[in-house]
Design a protein around this nucleic acid. Structure first.
Lengths: 155, 155
DNA sequence: GCAATATAGTGAGGCCACCTCACAATGAGG
DNA sequence: CCTCATTGTGAGGTGGCCTCACTATATTGC
């Protein structure tokens, strides 16, 4: 019985692992069509929600070093998704700003996201979806606590 | 109502995306404690299930170029997880073999896996778990089809 | 007002995961 | 024996990450 339970749980974990791999593959693949990478798209995403931002802000938002942001922004500038504008008051800083092209692609990504969600979940009724989301939330909470045990105590 | 449905689905997709990120972070972090990376662990995993293998076999199994395997095996040899043995009949090939140390770590990883699954799912009863797994399977199937539309027709 | 200190961004140098292309050694089939 | 295929690896490239050192510019605190 305990073995049985272990096997079931292991099976569930296997699904999570495979999901993780597939999601990553899918994102990489579909972003490549727009000349983007996952990390660069992440930058665009932050900019879309924050408006023109300093690289420092982006670094903190993405949990990555300032140096890494420099590289990612370099790539986005080279491919025409963003520009570096001088910060109006702080001459050390640059404001990373999405170009028209960047905005167009980002908007398309966003609606593609919704479409993709529909593709994945169209056969779930409301109750199914709720149960699925509840399960995911539970797993996510456990995962977060496992990765950073101190985060538990803060909140 | 349709907007409502879209929002719910988008929320579910958000969970999947976050799960993917967290799972990756967790694996990277916990493997680092054993001086391993995700890719190197994947090699070890294949070896555990296949026994001593040529690099060509590993490359095909992992869906990666032969050159990449050379690099991964280089790393695993340097850190003492595997050795390169001459192939008994084909002098072009090398048999990658897990060392004692590699076997020990791999076994520990495997039982850690089970333990981790228990941590994530201990509060799910059998029915919950079944529903969760069914939901995951559904999403996985859709994802697989989306990534490689031709795979659908093959099976 | 000016010196001490903090902060924004980047060059240099490194690690890891990938890839392609070219090539040597070897195997397999005719 | 002579092609043709295959195994593995050097060379060279891309991308994501990091740390450390350094410049230019704030900010703070006498």
């Amino acid at each position: 019985m305990t073995d049985e339970a272990h096997a079931r749980r292991a099976g569930a974990l296997d699904r999570i692992l495979e999901l993780s791999v597939l999601v990553n593959a899918d994102m990489t693949q579909s972003l490549a069509r727009d000349q983007l990478t996952v990390s660069r798209a992440h930058v665009l995403w932050e900019l879309r929600h924050r408006g023109p931002s300093t690289q420092r802000v982006l670094a903190d938002a993405m949990g990555v070093s300032a140096r890494t942001i420099t590289g990612l922004v370099d790539g986005l500038v080279a491919t025409g998704f963003v520009t570096r504008e001088p910060h109006p008051t702080d001459r050390r800083a640059t404001l990373v700003t999405v170009t028209e092209h960047g905005a167009k692609i980002t908007a398309a990504m966003e609606s593609g996201q919704v479409e993709f969600a529909s593709l994945l979940f169209d056969e779930f009724d409301a109750a199914d979806l709720d149960r699925f989301v509840a399960g995911m939330d539970h797993v996510l909470a456990k995962l977060r606590a496992h990765i950073d045990p101190t985060a538990r105590e803060i909140q």
